[in-house]
Write a protein that binds this DNA or RNA. Structure first.
Lengths: 252, 252
DNA sequence: CGGCGGCTTGAAGGACGTCAAGATTAGTGG
DNA sequence: CCACTAATCTTGACGTCCTTCAAGCCGCCG
């Protein structure tokens, strides 16, 4: 019934999927604002939860979906981190995004009706699968679900646009760090320190820089007292200064 | 009712805004595939047409909407060309896209609930205004409308993603020319020659290059026999070669 | 004609990439 | 727990693509 997903294990028993945790998880989910508010009637909420399929665990390197596969569902990360990437005709990887728990993946597959990218777990990850036909049917019945779906799509345009801007390595890195810490903070983690799940090469690729450049800029940020770096652990020491650097990218 | 082809100026008076042209126009509109097919029942089609408001003319430099204005509607270009752009905190312009007749503008405003960019006419332009509340209401009733709306959003993610890729000036310019000619061709114009409505500076900005670079690359493309350039008139002479150059960007 | 915006062309400089070599760290099996 | 290998990360030297700066050119319009 559940769908065998690419390289990952078949949906094994899910540690995190017990209902006791349900509410807590949903509070950080992309559809949380739809599900949780008392405004939505109970049966509708039940329907939304009904169409969600819990999948995992995926292990580092496993694919949630692959480029070219027919599009059938969008996914919300439930735990762990997932990256999306394309491989262009020349064989070069381009990372499109890093996705934290509660964030959606696969929205860019609606139009081509095939996944235009790979979604790959960076560590042990669990996801929620939203069957797209079921979701749109529900969206037609519940205005809030439709609105939220449209907002999520629209927000993704904005994110891709930010990445497309013409900015220096310093600006990009500052914005990256601030963006990441803000997303972690929204999930209850420290607003100033966090752990980078991904290798430098992935950060560099995502920011369209060389890994050496990322290394050098991080080093300089540290020398300037803006951050403290220890391997993949990062602490932001001077957020205002970073914000000043990133101000041409961050607008909301 | 002909439209001036490629090099020609766009209709100065208002040849296109009459209702007699309605059907013909819709055939190239982003919602055309929804409106036109006999599959959609007549009353629904009427409803969609009912909620559309024709606006124009806008003249070169006029704003269709402005950054920060509350979001109330999305727009389809009806005639002419519209560019979208943001001005970052440092005062630098970043062009997000050029929009031909039939293409939608403003989809990135759904999430923030404010227009995050300016939409500016590049020449004399007419647009269709789709009230967003009315459109989503209709989308809830007519699955095809909902699907099309979602597809449009999703497609915009893909476009922004292309722009965000890490590519050389040659690749960018080749992809730009091919993309433009393809969109013109889809509207019945020449598949090899067209007129650039926008100045070099706008092209450069859109591609995140300096105008001098655009100038130089176009010159070299011409020297190499790939294109013929005369001011803003462009003819593609060696499409396969251009396609080879752009192959790392174009994937669909 | 003269001025002005858009476009082109050349020369110099800079930001970042590439290449190459170490230094750390992580992973693995003995 | 310790070798041992493989990633990952850092650091330096050098190269390059593109930008920046600075003229000059062209077409257009008053």
């Amino acid at each position: 019934m559940s769908k065998p997903v690419s390289a990952g294990r078949l949906p094994t028993p899910n540690p995190i999927a017990d209902d006791g945790d349900e509410l807590h998880f949903c509070s950080t989910c992309a559809f949380g604002s739809v599900c949780l508010p008392a405004g939505v009637d109970k049966s509708a909420l039940r329907e939304l939860h009904m169409l969600v399929e819990h999948i995992g665990p995926f292990h580092a390197g496993d694919n949630v979906f692959r480029t070219g596969e027919p599009f059938g569902a969008i996914y919300a990360v439930r735990a762990g981190m997932v990256k999306t990437r394309v491989i262009d005709d020349v064989g070069r990887e381009q990372i499109l995004g890093f996705h934290l728990p509660g964030e959606m993946v696969g929205l860019n597959a609606i139009h081509p009706a095939r996944y235009p990218c790979d979604a790959i777990a960076l560590d042990t990850a669990y996801v929620c699968r939203f069957s797209f036909p079921a979701l749109t049917t529900l969206a037609a019945k519940i205005p809030d679900v439709q609105q939220q779906l449209l907002r999520l799509l629209s927000a993704d345009i904005g994110k891709a646009t930010q990445l497309a801007g013409d900015h220096s390595a310093d600006e990009r890195l500052a914005a990256f760090l601030l963006g990441l810490v803000a997303r972690y903070a929204a999930r209850g983690f420290s607003p100033s320190a966090f752990h980078l799940t991904m290798p430098r090469a992935d950060i560099a690729n995502y920011l369209r820089l060389a890994t050496e450049t990322v290394s050098r800029v991080l080093r300089r940020f540290q020398d300037q007292g803006l951050i403290r770096v220890d391997g993949r652990d990062v602490e932001l020491l001077d957020v205002p200064a970073l914000r000043r650097l990133a101000r041409s990218i961050l607008r909301d």
